[in-house]
Amino acid sequence: SHFELRVGTITLHFDNISEELAEELEKLAKNGVHADEIRRWWEEWLK
């Protein structure tokens, strides 16, 4: 499923992401983690 995450002024787009993972990314964003860090985390997870 597709997921969009708003982090400050940036909107990150994720394809084929589980609800659980989407929730984890939302938690990171709410805790003030920068969009670049979240994207890096996601790319690492995909490997």
Score class of each variant (00 low, 15 high):
V7F: 05
W41C: 06
R6L: 15
L5D: 03
G8V: 02
H34Y: 06
K47Q: 13
H13M: 10
H13W: 11
H13D: 02
A29P: 02
L25T: 00
L12N: 00
S18M: 03
R40T: 11
I38E: 01
L25S: 00
E23T: 12
R40D: 08
A29G: 03
E20V: 11
R6S: 15
S1G: 14
W45N: 06
N31K: 12
L21T: 10
K27T: 12
N31W: 07
S1W: 11
E19P: 15
K27Y: 11
N31M: 11
L21I: 13
R40P: 02
H34W: 07
L21R: 03
E26K: 14
E44V: 07
E44R: 06
S1V: 15
H2S: 12
H34M: 11
I38D: 01
H13L: 11
E23W: 12
H2M: 07
H2E: 08
L12Q: 00
G32D: 05
T9N: 15
G32S: 05
E43L: 11
L28D: 00
L12A: 00
E44H: 10
S18E: 03
T9A: 14
A35C: 02
E24S: 09
H13A: 07
E20K: 12
K30H: 11
R39W: 15
W42F: 15
L21M: 12
E44P: 00
V7M: 04
E20C: 05
A22Y: 11
S18N: 08
K30L: 13
K30C: 05
R39V: 15
E44Y: 08
F14Q: 00
E23Q: 15
L12M: 11
E26Q: 14
F3P: 00
E37R: 06
E24D: 07
E44K: 06
S18K: 03
A22N: 02
H13C: 06
V7G: 01
N16V: 05
W45H: 09
E37G: 11
L5W: 02
I38Q: 01
E20R: 08
A29R: 04
K30P: 02
D15S: 11
I10R: 01
K27Q: 13
I38Y: 02
E26G: 09
A22D: 01
F3W: 12
K27P: 00
T9P: 10
E23P: 01
V33S: 11
W45I: 08
R6A: 14
H34P: 15
T9Y: 07
H13Y: 14
R39S: 09
N31Y: 09
W45G: 04
E20A: 12
R39K: 13
L5Q: 00
K27F: 10
S18C: 03
K47Y: 09
I17K: 00
K30Y: 10
E19T: 13
V7H: 01
E20N: 08
E19G: 12
W41K: 14
